[in-house]
Amino acid sequence: MIPSLEQLSDQFTRLIRLGAVAPNVQDSAAASPGPTATPPPSPGPVQPVDYSLKGYHLDITVPPGQVILAAEILDKNGFGLDAITGVDWIAQDEMEVVYDYFHPLSPLRVVVRARVPRSHPEIPTIYKVFPGANWHERETHDFFGIRFLGHPDLTPLLLPEDADYHPLRKDFNA
């Protein structure tokens, strides 16, 4: 039940090829105007990284449509859901959804990322694969306004019940 790093990388490389949609990391980097203060996009969609430098082992970038498939692969390999969160890359007019996974039986840590346009931040929910995603996605919706399609209840979790603002967006001013 404990996968090796290579096996996982293979499974994800296959998934991304099957999807026939290359993740648009390179596109977004090209579209960004000038020398923005953002990290350079990772060179490939499936990137083993040095744990001692980053704190995780595998960095996977998928198109938004594939986050459920990615969650299913990790679920089959015995991973648990650590957290879901967002990052607002306002300079690139994009928002990143970051899924952290841990493995209860091995030291392997995996990060799955997907980018959605800021004007239309929508991504499928993974709560059917990991029910724990329910709250994490609600929180991410609270903070970033990212809509998780198919989510049963996106009412504010931590913010007041009538909140119509998203405080972690970079253009939010209190």
Partner: peptide, 10 residues
């Protein structure tokens, strides 16, 4: 244990 994994309980 399965529920812990699915919800990320640690």
């Amino acid at each position: 244990a399965e529920m812990c994994r699915k919800y990320g309980a640690t």
